[in-house]
Amino acid sequence: MQTSDVDHDRLLTALRSLLAAKGITTAAEIAERITITDAATPARGAAMVAKAWVDPEFRTLMLTDGARAAESLGIPMRGMPPLGVLENTRTQHHLVVCTLCSCYPRAVLGYPPFWFKSNSYRARAVRDPRRLLAEWGTVLGDDVALRVVDSTADYRWMVLPVRPMGTRGWSEAALAGLVREGDMIGVTTPQLPSGTATLAK
């Protein structure tokens, strides 16, 4: 049967009924999980990044145990996979992909963007990552090492990007406003509104 021929609503209803009948989960638990998932947005990850930029102690916690760092900011992590945080520097860049499916740090970034789930992103991130990054406007110099992180198993990974130059004295809220979804996946880097800051500077 073609996927398009399946009546998705009926399939979903049948699956939910079976899960309830077998005592695996309840309608209330599913509703609670949907509420938690819907509430997560990249603003959560951005708040973590901004705090890490201004608070060295939090930065250490975030790089050691991402889930505990998230929880300390009130982000619900119960039932979520462990969160690993990868630190970008001026000489080390990270790019996150899930070549097998679409594993994504939903607790802190929300639903994955459509391109993250695409076959072309998943293939090219491991096969030709520097050119893929260049297409995103992220041109890495030869002096910048690139590490592609393939989320194959039980962890979820996010990137702690480099704080842009020219943001000394900025408030945590203003810094968080600079951080976009793609910056925490590693396809882009945080830019000043003028677009002048780059990884190379």
């Binding site: 030709d128 690139l146 590490r147 592609v148 992180v149 194959t152 198993a153 039980d154 962890y155």
Partner: peptide, 15 residues
């Protein structure tokens, strides 16, 4: 991993 010697990168994977 790839025959043509590209790309200049490391791949970090959970196994």
């Amino acid at each position: 991993l790839w025959g043509d010697g590209k790309p200049k990168a490391e791949i970090l994977v959970e196994l």
